[in-house]
Design a protein around this nucleic acid. Structure first.
Lengths: 340, 340
DNA sequence: TGTGTCGCTGCTAGCGCTAACATCTGGCTT
DNA sequence: AAGCCAGATGTTAGCGCTAGCAGCGACACA
């Protein structure tokens, strides 16, 4: 009983042809069962499913993509995979896309628009049916490429006012401004903004903060901005640098919660009372921020929902429909806690 | 001058055929330029590259995969994408695979072996050239599936003693045991183990901890284990539960740093001196753990290196070579800090 | 009984690319 | 000067699947 393996092709791979033969039908019916499941009688469908299960058939997306011109892939570009914010956004995207049979193909740009273009070219080889991009700052060639391929694309995390662009996010400027107004309302006057990883969103937060301070007629805030990758340890270091430069500072806005947490820990280590001597606020509201002691004031950003809504919008575009909105503002929440 | 668009096919897509025509050569030479770059004269290569650039040609991986039986995809299964540990592992994997032209196709199992099997079936439709799995606990069908497809596979994060299995990781038991011995050496005697998210690695850490306590001839540790997803907030809650149940506890090992950080913050809030009244230790050594105040004692795990080495091992297997080791132990480091 | 309709099923012709062979060129040996 | 090799280039035949249409039987109606 040699050669009893349920295989026909040379390669040893179970193909749709094999399933069709096993079920006594034609390939196209097998295809129909595995696709949207159009016109197949229940009896034939059952026979085909049994045959596929028996042979251990696994469909081939590459062949399907080639024949149908639909890859069921979605290319996703995020700046960093070690940043919780983008990872939670990814989780939101996947939650919406995978039930529809789409697979995310992901790449990380390391906050570089040039790298983004390079990676997009690579991902295009997967013939994605749509693209999700982070932010609204891209190289012109990136947008040209998407346009020339007539690829649906949605920008995430920021709002894109450009006509013809689709975006889901919130206003980074407004987030920064909210912190400034909060500090001022609490009576702080010697404000500072500390930032690392100077990507466009970080810059926008700082701009919003500065602008709100100016609009309130107060002295321009002290600013400490370094290009290094942001981390908890860097936050500790930057707190000391800021205080060394401006000992009178009484409220510091850190461009994200990693820095702010590091500053909080360092303040504790230095014996600086927070918020008594110095108020501290962050951005993004990471899960730990509600639990530090003192708990951290932060702008909560709806990144998981950004992912979900952007995916939903892309789904519409890929189906050839126009989504209800082109520019979906999901807002943010200022969570005032003990640190300010 | 209508129809001047550099396109030939009906679909409006620039194909290899178009590039060949533009360069005045045949498809196969274009193919050779875009593949490993075999036998093509510098002159022809330059002509083809110019033609491809001019037309904006993007190769099609689906077609390539179909024709060559090599997809250049690697399937990666991780339990969770919101857990830093696995994300850093992913970063390590990508760092090694992408320079070789491989693309990661990823899915998250949510710590379920059944879900893992389901997802693997889905990923197999990409005809991956190799598979990376997290942990060594899988459904029998998962292993059968991999074997029947003759797919190279490497298990990450734990050591797999089974013959024929490839793994890169470290001993979770030994990690737990190291904490136990450290506590005992410091003079703590009322030990406890607190865990959430009871995946196999968590269980193994607890087992190692318990075993080491037993071997030292001390009283069995108090254990508090809950199935909930682990988080900083849960750590705070579990600290209180543990102390309510056993007020005399003097040293607690939390199965990961999220829980341990939450406990640390809560201890501070409750006015419990750490390590004076209670020692706290975690596992994984997340970046923030070195900066909390007091800094957290933790077992540093080489997850990024696990990713890199597992990817390197898989690369060997995919090239048809046998890697130097089948079971690569990367060890861990006990970082003793202020909290114990 | 003829005709129209409808739901199901099958056939044919590729999708864009590459493996494996076939062919061609030019320089080098004898 | 003929022969020969090696590297460069081209030809052919699919890889596994699906779009688009054609075929086919069953049923309702006149």
């Amino acid at each position: 009983m040699a050669g009893r393996k349920p295989r026909t092709t040379m390669t040893g791979r179970v193909t749709m042809q094999d399933v069709a033969a096993q079920a006594g039908t034609s390939m196209i019916s097998v295809s129909r069962v595995f696709r949207s499941g159009g016109q197949v009688s229940p009896a034939l469908r059952a026979r085909i499913e049994a045959a596929a299960a028996k042979l251990g058939y696994v469909p081939d997306r590459a062949a399907s993509a080639l024949a149908s011109a639909r890859s069921m892939n979605v290319a996703v570009l995020i700046p960093s995979i070690t940043n919780t914010v983008f990872v939670e956004m990814l989780a939101g995207i996947d939650e919406v896309l995978s039930p529809h049979g789409y697979q995310m193909i992901m790449a990380t740009t390391l906050y570089s628009a040039a790298e983004e273009l390079r990676l997009l070219r690579g991902l295009l080889a997967f013939r994605p049916d749509g693209v999700l991009l982070t932010g609204i700052d891209h190289q012109p060639a990136t947008l040209q490429l998407l346009q020339s391929q007539a690829l649906p694309a949605v920008h995430m995390m920021e709002l894109n006012g450009q006509p013809g662009a689709y975006s889901v996010g919130f206003s980074q400027e407004q987030g920064g401004a909210a912190i400034a107004r909060h500090f001022l309302a609490r009576g702080y006057r010697k404000l500072g903004f500390v930032a690392a990883q100077l990507d466009p969103r970080t810059i926008a937060r700082g701009a919003g903060f500065r602008q709100a301070v100016r609009e309130a007629g107060e002295a321009a805030p002290y600013e400490l901005m370094v290009p290094e990758r942001s981390s908890v340890g860097l936050g500790a270091k930057l707190l000391q640098e800021a205080l060394a430069a401006r000992p009178a500072l009484d409220a510091l806005f850190f461009c994200n919660d990693d820095l702010a947490q590091g500053a909080l820990f360092q303040a504790q280590r230095l014996g600086l009372a927070v918020p008594g001597r110095l108020a501290i606020a962050g951005f993004n509201d990471l899960p730990a921020s509600a639990w530090t002691s003192p708990a951290l004031t932060s702008v909560a950003t709806p990144r998981e929902q950004v992912g979900r809504r952007a995916a939903a919008m892309l789904l519409e575009l890929m189906a050839g429909r126009e989504p209800p909105t082109r520019c979906e503002d999901l807002g943010f929440t200022l969570n005032v806690r003990e640190s300010s």
